[in-house]
Structure formats: C-alpha cells, structure tokens
C-alpha cells in the first residue's frame, strides 16, 4: 500500500484530477479553494505540488506564457499512476476507518 495522503494533499490531487489538461497552478489553487470553501495560501498549494512531484505522484510540463502573465511560463500538472494509486489507497483506508462508526453527538 502506498503511503496515505494528508487531507490537503488529497484536495490538491483531486483538483488536478478534476481539472484534467487544465491543471496549472492558478487553476489548482482556485479549485482547492472552491472545494474547501475557504481562502488557501498560494504558498501552501505550491509547496504541496512540489512535494507531490518529488514523491512521483504527479508530473508536470511547461508551456509558454501569456501577456497577462508577463510572458512567464505555465506549469501544468498531471496525476501519475502512483498518485492515482495513493488516492485510491487513502480512500479505501478512510472508508474502512469510518465503516460502522457513529459519532456520539449524532447518535439517536
């Protein structure tokens, strides 16, 4: 089993998965904010992206920049097979952990 992912790592990987070929830094940041329904520091997202790439869970490619970016390149991210496996493992582990668990406050 691959190493289990933290909540924020899962959010970033799921954002990449959801965005498909449009998963570049800004889009990932916005998607994560939208899903978590809160402001997220850009630094946190980029640090996570870098860490995930170093662990081989995502890979990236560069594309030419636009005028609005001051000509700076865009880095697009793509989920790797290892990343997909890690997401699956984490989901299974979480589901198993929560199976038949009822929080005391929600009990009848």
């Amino acid at each position: 089993m691959a190493e289990l992912l933290g909540t924020f790592e899962q959010s970033v990987l799921l954002a990449i998965l959801g965005l498909g070929s449009e998963a570049y830094g800004r889009a990932v940041l916005n998607r994560v904010q939208e899903k978590l329904a809160r402001d997220v520091a850009a630094g946190a997202v980029y640090a996570t992206l870098e860490r995930l790439e170093a662990r081989g869970l995502v890979r990236s490619r560069l594309e030419a920049g636009t005028t609005v970016r001051g000509g700076r390149a865009r880095r697009y991210y793509l989920l790797d097979a290892e990343g997909e496996r890690a997401l699956g493992d984490t989901r299974r582990a979480l589901t198993a952990m929560w199976n038949n668990v009822q929080l005391p406050a929600q009990e009848g």
């Binding site: 940041l29 916005n30 609005v68």
Partner: peptide
Amino acid sequence: ETIAGDLREE
C-alpha cells in the same frame, strides 16, 4: 517563473 506568473494572472 511559473508561480510568479500564476499569481500575476490571478
């Protein structure tokens, strides 16, 4: 380059 570009774009 890429991060500064993303933030400028945003």
